[in-house]
Design a protein around this nucleic acid. Structure first.
Length: 285
DNA sequence: CCGGACTCCTGTGCGC
DNA sequence: TGCGCACAGGAGTCCG
């Protein structure tokens, strides 16, 4: 399940492969994975919006979203959802699993031919077309909270003060803070000794400092490990991330806490399964 | 207006 | 052995 570290890793692995390449053909197998930001854009060919004929100028990431920006400015924003993958394939290289492939871009750079493949079994992911990168930044990305990877504690506290929801739910809300999903929410709360059901606005100054620090540190370490591969996630070349072996709570329900001798428990918070240590993570009243 | 519940979707793994 | 169901969760929508 791609969160910020996985998307960042995807971006880093993709960048040297596709920046500078020209999109000389696009095959779209499922039209309903493409969304349009502006109704006006629908007048253009769907293939134009999928960057047909364009040269890829750069990539950008915000939270869990990845943008492919073309030379003329037109921008495609990719949200991987739960099971979305972007894979780079060399000429004639085959994808291991050919099912659930929704879009394929044929690329060429100098004499090199390759393909970029968007595959997404669960189809929670989608592509959104924008006339320019600025337009993406001023609309869809402007609605996102601050970047989790660089979150400062006073900003985090400010954001959390606005809501009485469980802290775990607030961390998962991309409008509050951008980039955190179920895995890193549980991991950061454990590291910061905060009970996931604590009301967000009850976080004291020292707690929010610990939490901000934990979020930054876990996301950074996860990026260095290539992300967490639970099931589907790989980078652009199909490599798995190794951070899952460093998870201290996620996926460890019933096992022993690594800090004390309690057993980790699992509980539903905001419709999401949440694992935490009932001893190390005290509930704030 | 806020927040909780529901919805989309398919693969996996478990229990009977 | 095989079937059926619960579960996995990112994010939008709906409703009290």
């Amino acid at each position: 399940m791609p969160e910020l570290p996985e998307v960042e890793n995807l971006k880093r692995s993709l960048e040297p492969l596709i920046v500078g390449a020209r999109v000389h053909a696009v095959r779209l197998y499922r039209r309903d994975i493409v969304q349009f930001h502006e109704p006006g854009l629908q007048g253009n060919s769907i293939y134009d919006q999928l960057l047909l004929g364009q040269r890829i100028a750069s990539l950008a990431r915000r939270g869990k979203q990845l943008a492919i920006i073309a030379e003329d400015g037109s921008t495609l924003c990719i949200q991987l959802g739960m099971s979305g993958q972007l894979r780079y394939l060399r000429h004639r290289q085959r994808l291991g699993q050919n099912d659930h492939v929704h879009c394929v871009w044929q690329l060429s750079r100098q004499a090199t031919r390759a393909r970029l493949v968007f595959r997404d079994p669960r189809r929670f992911g989608h592509l959104t077309a924008f006339a320019s990168f600025t337009e993406l930044e001023s609309s869809q990305w402007a609605a996102l909270g601050p970047e989790a990877i660089t979150i400062r504690s006073h900003i985090l506290r400010q954001r959390l003060q606005r809501t009485r929801r469980a802290i775990k739910s607030a961390l998962l809300d991309q409008h509050v803070i951008a980039g955190i999903g179920n895995i890193y929410a549980d991991e950061a709360l454990f590291t910061a000794h905060i009970h996931p059901a604590s009301p967000a606005d009850r976080l004291a100054h020292d707690s929010s400092q610990r939490l901000a620090k934990s979020i930054r540190s876990i996301l950074q370490r996860a990026i260095l490990s290539g992300g967490s591969t639970i099931r589907d996630y790989t980078d652009a070349l199909g490599q798995n991330g190794s951070f899952a072996s460093e998870h201290r709570v996620y996926g460890r329900s019933g096992q022993l806490c690594v800090r004390c001798t309690s057993h980790l428990v699992s509980q539903f918070i905001g419709q999401r399964s949440t694992v935490f240590c009932p001893h190390c993570q005290q509930l704030l009243a």
